[in-house]
Amino acid sequence: MSSQIIPGPGGTGPGAASPHAPSAANSIRMVRLLGTVSLMCGLLIVVTNLATKDRIQSNQETITRESVAELLPGISKQVTYGVEPSGELKVLTGATGEGKKFFAGYDGSGKLVGVVIEAGERGYADVISALYSYSPATQTIIGFKVVDMRETPGLGDRIKSDIPFLANFKNLDAKVENGKEVHNITTVKHGTKKNAWEIDAISGATISSRAVGRMLHKSVEDVTPVILKNLDRIERGN
């Protein structure tokens, strides 16, 4: 069929055709071909999307669930809450999706262990996104985990793994009154941490360490008032 459409010596190359300007018939043929190719490609993409959609979503949920479980050891049940723009809480079925949200974790007897909150802040190279666990009972941050970042390998990326740095988040004061922190969470120079609301920076990674401090300060003032206001409901888990 091919030699009929494209005149050419043995079909060695596409369109060995004519050196002349394309005729109207030629143009229509090109448009038709491109259209067909695009349509086929589009169909293939749609099919793949449908086939992988569930798998992708469950992958993302698994990752979030595992991170939450890691930050709140000993929990056996998780509930995801979304915060509406009006400040109302809503239980979400999936762990993913847009908007402000947090995850409440409960132990075997159904008691609230803590809450894991998503946060993000611009670091040295790109946005650092992280999860941190918060205990509403004591109003402290009890864990921190970097989810995604592009900080300098060997320097800034130590915020993910540096054990002394992560020890800052075992019991970090995050007390909030009237929507403002009593003591702002701040990052201080390495070796000068004195108070429970200060983060001891990593020596040589000051910019990334400060970004973590800003991130937590903003997020605590933003999210924890909603949690404290609805604490009864969150403790019941509905």
């Binding site: 190359g13 596409p14 369109g15 055709a17 030629n26 043929r29």
Partner: peptide
């Protein structure tokens, strides 16, 4: 063999 020369890159 169906692709016209003029639009091969686009295809």
């Amino acid at each position: 063999k169906l692709i016209p020369k003029q639009v091969r890159i686009a295809t």
